[in-house]
Amino acid sequence: MKTLLHMQGLTKEYGKEKAVDDVTFSLNKHTSTALIGPNGAGKTTILSVLAGLLKQTKGSIVFDGEITEDFRKGIGFLPQYPKFYSWLTALEYTEMTAKLSGVDVKIARLEAEKTLEFLGLGDAKKKKTGTFSGGMKQRLGLAQAIVHKPSLLLLDEPVSALDPIGRREILNLLKELQASTTILYSTHILNDAEEMMDQLLFLRKGKLVEQGSMREVREKYANPVYKMYFSSSEEAARFVELSPWSARQENSIAFIHIEEAKPLMNEVLRVLSDSNLSLSKVERATASLEEIFLQVVNKG
C-alpha cells in the first residue's frame, strides 16, 4: 500500500496552549481514517492545518512524496458547517469552486453538473444556495469538496448534523468515493461510521493516544464480555451474587467481564453446577466502539 500523506510531529500552539501536540500518522491511498475524540481534542485543528487554513507551529507534512507547505490543489475540504454565497445557485457555486481548484474552465461546468447529479442535487442545481435545507447544504458542501477529484478528502464531522437517514445516505456516498480518493474525517458518532474506518486515530487534548486498525484496537481494548441468559431475573441476580468476577445483571441476563483474556470457563461451569442455576444460553459479546472510545479517551 502506498502512503499518500505522512504527518510528523505536528504541533499547533496558541500562546502556551497546545491545540495539537506532537501528532504523527500516515494515510495510505484509498483508505478511510477516522479522527476520533471529544470536542476540543484537536480534530478540527489538524484538518485545518492540512487544508491550509492554519500553519503548524512545528512538524512536517509529506504529501504524495513531497515535503510541502501548500498542497491545497490536492485536497477537498468539507467543514462541519459549510457556508456558501447565498446569492449563487448550486451550479454556479460548484462551477466556481471547480475552476478555483484548477479544473479546466472548459469542462468545469460539466464536472459541476455531474457532481451535483451524483450527490442527488440535480434538480436543485438552479436554486440559490441560500434556500437550501441542512441536508442539501451538506451535499453541496460535499460537491465542492469532490468536484475537482482531490487525492485527499478532509471531512470535519461530515454526518453529525444530519438525521439518521441523511447520515446513512452520506456515508454510502463516502463509501463510493473511497474507491477513488483517500478520506480523513473527524467524528464523534462512532457506530454509524464503523464500516468506514480502515484506520482509527484517537485524540485526547491534542495528543494522539491510540491508533491502529479497527481490529487491532478492538483486540487491545475489548475485554470480552459474556452474556449469560438465565430463565429468570432472580436466577441472574443469584449468579451475579455468586460470581467471583465483576458482573452485573439486566433482567434475566448476567454480564461478566473477565479482565484477562483467558475466560475461565471451568470456573463458570463450577459456579453453575454448585448453584443449580439453569443457564439457557451464553454469548460472547464484543465491546462497542463507543465503549472503546470511552476507555481510550479516559485513560491516563
Partner: peptide
C-alpha cells in the same frame, strides 16, 4: 466572519 471565505481559502487561489 460568516465563513463563506473558508471554501475559497482552502483552494489554490
Amino acid at each position: 466572519k460568516n465563513g463563506t471565505a473558508t471554501l475559497l481559502y482552502v483552494r489554490p487561489i
